[in-house]
Design a protein around this nucleic acid. Structure first.
Lengths: 213, 213
DNA sequence: TGTATCCCTGCATAATGATGTGGTTTTAAA
DNA sequence: TTTAAAACCACATCATTATGCAGGGATACA
C-alpha cells in the first residue's frame, strides 16, 4: 500500500529547514526530495515538480509563499501545499487559502504534528489548527441583520434573482409578479440592507451568506 | 483552570444518545446536563439553555438539526454546536455551518475523538474531520478562468469597485479614469466573465473569489 | 377590532447602465 | 522590430434601474 510521499520544503531559515528535513526523512513513508531557501530556487529545480506535498513559508525573500502557491497552481502542478508560517492573522490565512493552499499550520507546530498533517494532506484532507479552522468556519455563518430588518421569504427569493442578472421584467415572470411588484420588494430589500443599488445588494447578500450562487 | 464543560445532546437514536452520554460523563471535565430525542424537547428544557457545547444530529424528527442551530443562534444562546451526523454531503455540511454550527463530525467518529472535539470546540476551535476541512477549504480557492480570460490588474480593481455600488463616474474619480475609460474596462470584464450586467459580474467575481468584500 | 406585517399593483421621472464604433499610447513579449 | 495586449478617451443610443407617491387585500396576533 502507501507509496512514499515526496516532500518539498521552501523555507529561508536554514535551522528550521534542516530541522524539518531531518525529522521528516526518518519517517518510512516520507522522503524530502528537495529543500529550498527561496521560491525561485525551488521553481528552477526539476525535483520540485515531482513533489506530492510542499511545505511552504509565507515570508520568503523575493516571491512570497502566497505568490508562490498562486504561480504553482496556475501552472498546473498537482502538489498540495501546506503553508507553515509564524503568522496567524486573518489576511494571511485567507490569502493563502484563496491562492490554493490546502492546509495552514503555525511554525510552532511540533514535528510530530507536522508528520500527521502531511499524511492528512496526502490523503485528501486539510490540516490546520482548530483555531484557524474556527476562523474559517466563521466566514460561513450568516451575518444576522437586526431582527426588524430580516428579509422575508419573498425578498430573499427576489434577492437571489437579482444576483443572476435578470431584469425586473424577467424576475417578475419567473416568480409570478408584476414588474411593479418586483420593484416593491426590491425597494424593501434595499432599505433593509441599507444599499441603493442592485450590485450593492447582491454583494451584501452574498457576503452575509443570505443567498448563494 | 478548566471549568466543567456542560454538554447537551440532541439525538433521536436512543442507543447512540445513551452511549455518548455514558461515555462523556466519565470524563472529569465534562458533564452531560441534558440529553434529548428532539429539538422541541431540548428547547423546552431549562437545562438546555445552560449548555456550553451541544452535540446535535441533523436528521431529527420535527425540527431538523440545522433549523435547530439556526433558531438557537437567532435567540442568542451562547452554546457552541457540533453537528454529529451520518451525512457528509456538501449541502448538509455547508447548511449546518451557515446556520451557525462550529464543528461537523460524522457519527462513525470514535467516542475518544468526540471527547477531543468537545474540548477543541470549548477552547474556541472548530473540530471537523480532515476531509470535511478540505471541502470547506476548496470553497476558498480562486476558480481559475481560462488563461486568456484572466482579469488584468486594472480590471480587478474596477470589478472591486463595481461591487460597492459606485456609479461609473464615482469609480472614475476614485481610480483616476474618465467615465469612458471605466466603461471600456467594464466591457472587457463582462466579456471575460461572460456576463451582461453589473450584478452578474459582482456575483461571479465574489463567488470565484476574484474579489472580496 | 384594531394594529402590524407581508404581499402586491400602478404611474411618473431622472439617473444610470449596456453596447456599438472608432480611435491613441504604452508596455512587454516574440 | 513587429506584434499583441493593456490601458485609455470619446460620442451615440436605447434599456434598465432607482425612487417618489398612493393605494388594496390577506393573515395573524392581542
Amino acid at each position: 500500500m502507501g507509496k512514499i510521499i515526496r516532500i518539498g520544503i521552501v523555507e529561508d531559515n536554514p535551522y528550521m529547514r534542516e530541522g524539518w528535513e531531518a525529522f521528516l526523512d526518518i519517517e518510512d513513508d516520507m522522503c524530502v526530495v528537495g529543500s529550498f531557501e527561496s521560491f525561485e530556487d525551488a521553481w528552477d529545480s526539476k525535483k520540485f515538480q515531482t513533489c506530492d506535498i510542499i511545505i511552504m513559508d509565507i515570508d520568503l525573500p523575493g516571491i512570497t509563499g502566497i505568490e508562490g502557491v498562486q504561480k504553482l497552481k496556475k501552472e498546473g502542478l498537482k502538489a498540495e501545499v501546506i503553508m507553515a508560517t509564524i503568522f496567524d492573522d486573518d489576511e494571511n490565512i485567507f490569502n493563502a487559502l484563496k491562492a490554493g493552499a490546502v492546509g495552514y499550520l503555525l511554525k510552532k507546530t511540533s514535528p510530530e504534528d507536522l508528520v500527521i498533517a502531511i499524511r492528512q494532506a496526502n490523503e485528501g484532507g486539510s490540516p490546520m489548527t482548530p483555531n484557524i479552522a474556527r476562523k474559517i468556519i466563521q466566514t460561513f455563518h450568516i451575518k444576522a441583520l437586526p431582527k426588524e430588518d430580516a428579509l422575508t421569504g419573498r425578498e430573499l427569493e427576489i434577492l437571489q434573482e437579482l444576483a443572476t442578472g435578470r431584469s425586473y421584467a424577467e424576475i417578475g415572470k419567473k416568480v409570478f409578479l408584476s414588474v411593479d411588484g418586483v420593484r416593491h420588494h426590491i425597494r424593501s430589500i434595499y432599505k433593509k440592507l441599507q444599499v441603493h443599488s442592485r450590485s450593492e445588494a447582491v454583494s451584501k447578500g452574498l457576503s452575509r451568506n443570505l443567498i448563494a450562487v
